[in-house]
């Protein structure tokens, strides 16, 4: 309940035309093979199937959607942890999808990732100090051991970890503290862009706010840009400037958070938002839920026509005949892909 000293700052000054990242028609298909001796490809999981968006320098762009819709794959393909099947990823104006070797390594310094499960992503046999300083060694920064230790201690302090514990191991920390270790490690190389892949999903409710507040403070201080992947739609509204809603490998709606949350246009976004419970019985009493039936279709065999037509409550003939509807600007800065809307 103690209010942190930092002032609130959602009125970030952003230059909408300053794109730190430009993603166009990005695809990542994972081959499905069969056969024990002679492996042959029998199909593909179309995890990411043609997504385009820009990320403005200094903003937090949320990426939401049901599990399996391709959020993590999008994040990893942007960072070139997976190489794209097709499409382009431009970071600071430079094309990453064709970049290799040392060039790519240099670019990666400026792009980092924070994972959901702080436990699984930290080497249990390394001390906190070596976990946080490992990226520095890889990139030959702070070669002087003493300076490096000082820098690591500064980082620990900045993320709210007592530097006194620099020689402890991950299992000696709580979940929230482990996520702080993950954040310190991601910050070590002074990146400008961070993909945060469900960074708070595994944390206790009372710890989530701690980590989110820390991420917001760090953004203000260091001018970071975040791609914030999450399934907690309430938290996304809180932390993000804009949000992209994914369904089955595609973006179906994109826009400023308040605009999308107050005026959702795509039937899937409408259902998704209406399904989120609010901790207030008075609000819950009057809520109209749009219940969509069925499950996410298999991404190796998406429906013909609009991807959402198997579950859409307002589908009509066009939705089964035409190819996927394009993402079109229906209100200022608000993009939707649906035949009903455009």
């Amino acid at each position: 309940m103690s209010s942190p000293a930092m002032a609130v700052d959602k009125q970030k000054v952003l230059d909408e035309n300053d794109h730190i990242l430009e993603v166009s028609d990005l695809k990542k298909h994972f081959p499905i093979s069969s056969g024990i001796v002679f492996q042959r490809q029998v199909g593909a999981v179309r995890a990411v199937d043609g997504v385009s968006f820009n990320v403005v320098r200094g903003e937090t762009l949320g990426l939401v959607g049901e599990s399996g819709c391709g959020k993590s794959t999008t994040g990893r393909t942007i960072l070139q942890l997976y190489r794209p099947t097709e499409g382009s990823v431009k970071f600071e104006g430079q094309e990453l999808s064709t970049m290799t070797g040392n060039d790519l390594r240099q670019m990666r310094r400026r792009m980092q990732i924070i994972f959901q499960d702080p436990f699984a992503s930290l080497n249990p046999r390394m001390t906190v100090g070596s976990i946080v300083s490992e990226p520095l060694q890889i990139h030959n920064m702070y070669a002087n051991k003493k300076e490096r230790q000082q820098y690591v201690e500064q980082l620990m302090e900045r993320v709210g970890l007592n530097p006194y514990f620099i020689n402890r191991y991950p299992h000696e920390f709580s979940g929230g503290q482990r996520q702080r270790i993950g954040i310190a490690r991601a910050l070590a190389l002074q990146p400008s862009f961070i993909v945060a892949d469900e960074p708070i999903s595994a944390l206790d409710v009372s710890i989530q706010a701690q980590v989110v507040n820390l991420m917001e403070e760090l953004q203000d201080e260091l001018g970071l840009t975040y791609l914030f992947i999450a399934h907690d739609l309430s938290m996304v509204r809180h932390i993000c400037d804009r949000v992209a809603v994914m369904y089955l490998g595609k973006i179906v709606e994109l826009g400023p958070v308040d605009e999308v949350y107050d005026n959702p246009q795509h039937p899937y976004t409408q259902a998704l938002l209406s399904a989120v419970p609010v901790p207030d019985p008075v609000v819950e009493e009057d809520r109209q839920r749009i219940i969509i039936s069925g499950d996410l279709p298999n991404p190796s065999n998406p429906p013909t026509g609009c991807n959402f037509n198997t579950r859409c409550p307002v589908a009509f003939d066009l939705c089964y005949q035409e190819p996927d509807p394009p993402l079109i600007e229906v209100r200022p800065k608000h993009f939707v892909s649906c035949h009903r809307v455009t």
Partner: peptide, 20 residues
């Protein structure tokens, strides 16, 4: 400490310090 779906998240989340 919970953000709300039905309000624009301008305010900083209040946080409970420490761990369970």
């Amino acid at each position: 400490s919970l953000p709300r779906l039905d309000s624009s998240g301008e305010e900083k989340l209040t946080q409970i310090e420490g761990s369970p």
